[in-house]
Amino acid sequence: MDSILSKLFASETEELYVLDCLAYFMIFMAACTFITLLFENVPYGRYATSRYGFPVNVKFAWFVQELPAFLVPLCLVLWTSAAKTTHLPNQLLLVMYFCHYVQRSLIYPFLIRGGKSTPFASFALAFVFCIYNGYMQVRYLSHYAEYSADWVTSPCFITGSVLWLVGWLVNLHSDHILRNLRKPGETGYKIPTGGLFEYVSGANFFGEITEWAGFALAAHSVHSASFSIFTLIVLASRAFAHHRWYLQKFEDYPKSRKALIPFAL
């Protein structure tokens, strides 16, 4: 893989410049996405329509679209001269990244119960995004990210790591609650209860937003920050859309629940 990358980039300086450009472009795309989502829900699940292409089986879609976020980084770490992977801060940040995507690509899709098919456009965009972001995050961490020897004891790294862990656990627990709302063979929607769902409609989204915000704080780079910003824009929109949908569909939906942030928003 080193030979492939050496053909694409004349030098490490050039590749690092490209990685920086990818990060800033992701921030630009987050801004464009924010404007778009003011007028349109993300077309998946309950919001899926035929306007966005033919339907793709939900389990197949989740598995295939998320897999590049695991496989591309894995290849970058195993089959390139990833010099920075010998440094503890880089190792811990890579573990955070892989913990999420091992679960999201290799475990989560096969636990889905019911669920509506994913429109092809949403599936294709997610697939491309996972390649893009997987390369950007892990190539930077494994090859270019420089941290001081005491970075793992710095307030930024410790706070970010704790936020990442809390967010990851909240996300896993919330997905477990949502998955078990449906008995085998059921496909309808029910009011989620338990865990953070007692306080917000988008507990799973809150967890993932917190997770990547913590990762960005611990990694302290424009690359991790751009992913955190993009995640915030997309998942906050989903949380507010779900909250409105729940209130409209269920007359007995708890009126005290917020959309995304407990007691606040």
Rank of each mutant, 00 (worst) to 15 (best):
D2Y: 05
L5N: 11
L5A: 06
K7I: 08
F9W: 07
E12D: 11
T13Q: 14
E15N: 09
Y17F: 14
D20M: 10
C21T: 05
L22P: 11
F25C: 14
F25K: 10
M26D: 13
M26E: 13
M26C: 12
A31N: 09
T33R: 07
F34D: 02
L38R: 15
Y44E: 15
A48N: 03
T49S: 12
Y52L: 03
Y52Q: 11
F54W: 12
L67F: 10
L67W: 01
L74D: 03
L76M: 08
W79G: 08
A82Q: 10
K84G: 08
P89E: 08
Q91W: 02
L93E: 12
L94G: 03
F98W: 01
C99H: 10
Y101P: 13
Y108N: 06
Y108I: 07
R113I: 15
G114R: 09
G115D: 09
G115M: 07
S117H: 11
L125P: 01
F127V: 13
V128H: 00
C130Y: 09
Y132H: 08
Y132P: 12
Y132S: 03
Y135W: 07
Q137P: 03
Q137R: 02
R139D: 00
R139P: 00
Y140C: 00
H143C: 11
H143N: 13
E146L: 09
A149E: 13
A149W: 00
D150M: 05
W151H: 13
V152D: 11
S154C: 01
C156L: 15
G160D: 12
V162K: 02
L165Q: 10
V166A: 06
S174H: 08
H176R: 11
I177L: 09
R182W: 05
P184C: 00
G185D: 13
T187F: 07
K190R: 13
P192N: 12
P192I: 03
F197Q: 04
E198Q: 14
V200I: 11
S201Y: 00
G202K: 09
N204I: 00
F205H: 08
F205G: 02
G207W: 00
T210N: 12
W212K: 12
G214Q: 06
F215E: 07
L217S: 04
A218P: 06
A219Q: 07
H220G: 02
H220A: 04
V222G: 14
T231H: 00
A236G: 04
F240P: 12
H242N: 13
H243W: 04
R244S: 06
W245T: 15
L247F: 04
K258S: 10
A259C: 09
L260E: 02
F263P: 04
